[in-house]
Amino acid sequence: MKNLLKLFFFLFVITFSYGQKTFAHVSFNCYEEKDGRIINNGLTTEFFSQGQHFISETKPLEITHSVIEDNNILTIKDFLNLASKERLKRQKKNVANIIFNDQVFKSIYLYCYDNGKFYKYQVKWVEEISD
């Protein structure tokens, strides 16, 4: 019985740790970010910030400020640092291994503040080279 409990705890820790790294919650302009740009063409919404490009093909979900406070929402800078760490963890020794932006996290949620309301977008992180 004791071994069974240890096994259950071990599996829980692995599952919980893995789950935390598969989702990223990122602030587009909920904090003090100033350099972002949004393009909405009616079908998609594109976000550009700090040389990064995100695209959403779904309608945003209007949320309350408490959702922002309850989640661990990262700034773009912190998100990029976390993505870099995730890439390093997945690198294999002595192998050229490229991990593209859309492969780093299973899902990315971008939070945006507009006209006194907060919105949550599910986005894809676009691979592109920008100046």
Rank of each mutant, 00 (worst) to 15 (best):
I39E: 13
Y121I: 03
P60L: 04
K120E: 10
Q20T: 03
N94V: 05
K89W: 07
F10S: 09
N101D: 15
T44C: 10
E32I: 02
Q91E: 13
E46T: 07
N3W: 13
V104P: 07
L5G: 01
V13K: 07
F118M: 00
K59D: 10
G51Q: 05
Y109M: 02
E57G: 09
E32L: 08
N3K: 15
F23N: 07
L74G: 01
Q52A: 10
C112N: 08
N29P: 06
T64C: 11
H25F: 04
I99Q: 14
N94Q: 08
N40W: 04
Y113A: 03
L5P: 01
N81P: 00
L11R: 11
R90W: 05
S17T: 01
F54G: 02
N94G: 04
D70S: 12
L61F: 09
D131H: 04
S56P: 01
L82F: 05
F48C: 03
N97Q: 15
F28H: 01
D70T: 10
L4N: 12
I76V: 13
S56T: 03
K34S: 13
N29W: 11
K85H: 15
I99E: 11
E33Q: 15
F105L: 04
F9R: 14
F100M: 08
Y119A: 00
K59W: 03
C112P: 00
F23Q: 04
F47Q: 11
E127D: 14
P60N: 05
N97V: 13
K117H: 13
T15G: 07
Y113T: 00
E62L: 03
Q103H: 02
C30Q: 04
V95Q: 14
F10G: 03
L61Q: 13
T15M: 13
A83K: 06
S49E: 07
I68N: 06
K89Y: 11
E69H: 09
G36D: 09
Q52I: 05
N81D: 15
K2A: 06
A96N: 11
K59M: 07
R87I: 14
D70K: 12
K6C: 11
Q122Y: 09
N94C: 04
K2Q: 09
V95E: 15
T45Y: 04
F105Q: 01
R87D: 05
V104I: 15
K106E: 12
I39V: 08
K89D: 12
Q50E: 15
I55K: 12
D35A: 06
D35N: 14
I76E: 10
K92D: 07
K34D: 09
K93Y: 10
S84K: 15
E62V: 14
C30V: 03
G36Q: 14
R90E: 12
I68E: 01
